[in-house]
Structure formats: structure tokens, C-alpha cells
Amino acid sequence: MATIGQLTSHIANKQVRNEKYAQLKHKQKKDQKKERIKRQREAAAAESQGLAPPPRKVQKTLENTRAWDETRIQPDDAENAADIAEDEFASYFNRQETPKVLLTTCYKPSKLMFELLAELLDVLPVAYYYKRQGYSVKKVAEYASNRGFTNLIVLNENRKEVNGLLLVHLPHGPTAQFRLSNLKLARDIKGHARATHHKPEVIMNNFDTVIGQRVGRLLASLFSQDSAFKGRQVATFHNQRDFIFFRHHRYLFEEKKGKLAAKEPVGARLQEIGPRFTLRLRSLQAGVFDKAGEVEWKKKASLKATRREFAL
């Protein structure tokens, strides 16, 4: 269905076009109001008769109207199941390999970077911080691989603002480069909880395409599969419109006290621990980091791209 802008874009005269646009917009609002009142009356009538209300209209969003993507994974895709059974992360998901992460920074880290490092070490009990000491990423990756590390994380900053994250799976890759934004440390989160050294549970949401699945498995390989449920800590990577939102929570169970305690169910809620940040994939490279290496995927500006096309 054509939009009001599309219906009026052919009018050359700007004043006439604006008047026509205003008329159509006014008519659209009146029709929407009539439809809303009709739905409210039908719902009230059904409630008075003890019937189920009519189904609500599904609101259109960028997610449920996304463009068709042939790389989206179907649940019964046998070929994809065979591929992931032999990929670089198979030994981790088969519990044949225990994650061990080397965490480092750019050459001259700021105070903010060290505060973030301290909180990431709480999120990743299997991580160890090493000072960069002027070595190139390729040298650091070689050093980490020789000492049994399974992943390398390099944090970058510009003008004392953390703005990038490089993640390398060792010893054979892949390498993912992310833009990091919207960083909030625990001290900036009101009512935050304190982290413990328990291994957190991991939740991965909406990594639906082939590239998304590889990125999701790469991020999941940072965490131990033997989660310490006693700690009740959860690390979540939620992908929405190719933005990956990271959150670190503890879930709490609250029992009602008093005379009504037996009748009231046990309540559950989340308390954020921190840090929180957003990742945006810039590139995915086959193998260990190399400026001349094979690129599996790279974000490119395209005139044909629409807001409803997503890579992950």
C-alpha cells in the first residue's frame, strides 16, 4: 500500500503538494480513530458477554517486515547442522575444549579502559589480562595461541572513549571486528548488583542468519559451558537490527512474607550487574587476524540497501 508521501510526490508545486499531504494525513488520522473506537467497542461487548476479545492487530515493525534473506537458517536445515558440527567452534560445544581468554587493550589505555577491564574480568572468570607492551595484534595472537588460549580480545579506544573490540578465535580463527558504543559501567547503573566469580549462564537471541550464527557461536565460545547456577548470573547477547546489546544480570527470587505468603507465588526479577554496551559488527574474517586475510563479511554502504535488510 502506497504511503501518503508516495501519493503526493508527483505534484510539482510545493504549496499544492503540502496542502494535499495535509488533507490525506487528516483523513488518515480520522480513519484510524474510527477503527480504534470500533475495536474498543467490540472488545467491551465481548467482555460483557464473557467471550474472548477479538485478536489485536499485529503492529508492523522492522523485524517482522524484514526483507527476505536466503541466508536465514531454518530449524530443519540438515546442511547447516552438518556445517556447524565441523566448524571452528565444534570442539568447544562438544565440551572437548575449555575456554581460556586473553584480554588486552590498545597501546595507551586510559583509566576508563582499566575500569572496563576489571568488570569484564568479573563477567569472564576464564579471562586473563596481559599488558599490550607495544606488540602487534598478530604477535599477541601468536603468543596467546602458543600458550593454550582459545580466544583473544583486544579493546580499542579513541580520545579516552572505548570504541572498538576485536575478537579472535584461536588457533584457526575466525576474527570479528566490532564497533563498541553506549558503554555504561556498573558505577553508572542505578541499583546495580555486585559481581561474584561464578561462571555465568549465557543467552544468545536472534542470531538467525549464517553470518549471525557464526558471530553468535564466536561470542558464546568466550564462556564456560559449565555454568555455576548457584551464582544466578546471566550474560545476554541480544541481536536486534544488527545491533548486539550486551547485558549482565543476576536473577533474584523473592518470597512473600506474612499471612498471604502461602497464597502468593514466588516472585522473580532481574538486577543488573554491569557493564552494558552495544556491539556492531564491522567485519568477519576467516582465520586469525591479518590485514590481507580472506574476508567472510564486511559492512558496506550500498545504495540498494534498505532499513529492512539485516546481516545477522
Rank of each mutant, 00 (worst) to 15 (best):
H197Q: 13
H198W: 07
P200N: 06
E201V: 10
E201Q: 15
V202Y: 04
I203C: 10
M204C: 01
N205A: 12
N206A: 13
D208Q: 12
D208R: 14
V210C: 08
V210R: 15
Q213M: 14
V215Y: 04
G216M: 05
R217P: 02
L219F: 04
A220M: 01
S221D: 07
F223Y: 12
Q225D: 04
D226A: 13
S227D: 03
F229E: 09
K230C: 07
K230E: 15
R232A: 09
R232E: 11
Q233V: 05
Q233Y: 04
V234L: 11
V234F: 02
V234D: 00
V234W: 02
T236I: 14
T236D: 01
R241I: 06
R241F: 12
R241P: 00
R241D: 14
F243W: 06
F243N: 09
I244Q: 08
F245W: 01
F246T: 01
R247A: 09
H249M: 02
H249S: 10
H249F: 15
R250Q: 15
R250M: 14
R250I: 10
L252V: 14
F253H: 11
E254H: 14
E255P: 00
K256L: 10
K257R: 12
K257G: 14
K259C: 01
K259N: 11
A261P: 07
K263G: 06
E264M: 13
E264W: 05
V266W: 04
V266I: 15
G267W: 09
A268W: 03
A268I: 06
A268R: 07
R269P: 00
R269V: 03
R269L: 06
R269I: 00
L270P: 01
L270M: 11
I273Y: 07
G274I: 06
P275S: 02
F277I: 03
R280Q: 11
R280V: 14
R280M: 10
R280L: 11
L281D: 02
R282E: 15
R282F: 00
Q285E: 05
A286W: 09
A286Y: 12
V288Q: 06
V288L: 03
V288D: 08
F289Y: 15
F289E: 13
F289I: 05
E294F: 02
V295Y: 00
V295E: 01
K298M: 12
K298T: 11
